[in-house]
Measured scan of single mutants.
Amino acid sequence: MPEGSASLQLAVGDRVVYPNQGVCRVSAIDVKEVAGQKLTFVTMRREEDGAVVMVPEGKVLAIGVRKVASAE
């Protein structure tokens, strides 16, 4: 991610809310080559049905992904 860009610090195992998809758990953060460029992807699995969603790390905030609020 370019320096100075806002990002959401995620780790494998974090629970997040993905708008219009529901609650997901981060299952992987991997670098993949797409069209000759190396990009970091956040892979999330929906808790409702296990569907897998992959989002480029740089788009996580723009999409509206946020961490699940704690009970505290």
Rank of each mutant, 00 (worst) to 15 (best):
R15Y: 15
T43C: 02
V52N: 04
V31M: 07
L8S: 09
K32M: 14
A6G: 13
A62N: 08
S7K: 13
E57M: 15
T43S: 07
K59P: 07
L8H: 10
A62Q: 14
L10H: 01
G58I: 10
R15M: 13
V17T: 07
F41H: 02
R66G: 07
V55I: 12
V55Y: 06
P56M: 09
N20K: 09
V42H: 00
Q21I: 15
V60H: 06
V68L: 14
V23Q: 03
S5N: 11
G50P: 02
V42E: 00
P2L: 11
V65P: 03
A6N: 12
L39D: 05
S27M: 15
V52G: 03
T43V: 14
V65A: 06
V12T: 03
Q9M: 09
P2W: 07
V65L: 10
A51F: 14
V16E: 01
K32W: 14
A11S: 12
S70N: 12
M1Q: 13
S27I: 15
M54A: 05
V12K: 02
R46G: 04
M44W: 01
V42A: 00
A62E: 15
V16W: 03
A69Y: 06
M1W: 11
Y18P: 01
G36H: 03
E48R: 12
K59T: 13
L39T: 09
G64R: 05
V60T: 04
Q21E: 09
S27K: 06
S70Y: 10
K59L: 15
P2I: 12
I29P: 01
A69M: 08
T43Y: 10
A35G: 14
V17R: 06
S5T: 13
E3P: 11
E47P: 01
V12W: 01
V65T: 05
V65C: 06
Q9I: 10
V55S: 03
S7V: 12
A11P: 01
T43F: 08
A51C: 04
V31A: 04
V23C: 00
K59F: 14
Q9K: 13
V42N: 00
P19E: 08
Q37H: 09
V52K: 06
A11L: 08
A69I: 12
A11C: 03
R25W: 11
V23N: 04
L39W: 06
V26S: 00
A28V: 04
C24H: 08
E3R: 05
E3W: 03
I63K: 08
V16P: 00
R15I: 14
A62H: 08
E3S: 11
E72Q: 10
L10S: 01
E72I: 11
K38L: 13
G64Q: 07
E72H: 10
L61I: 15
D49C: 02
I63A: 13
M54N: 05
M1G: 13
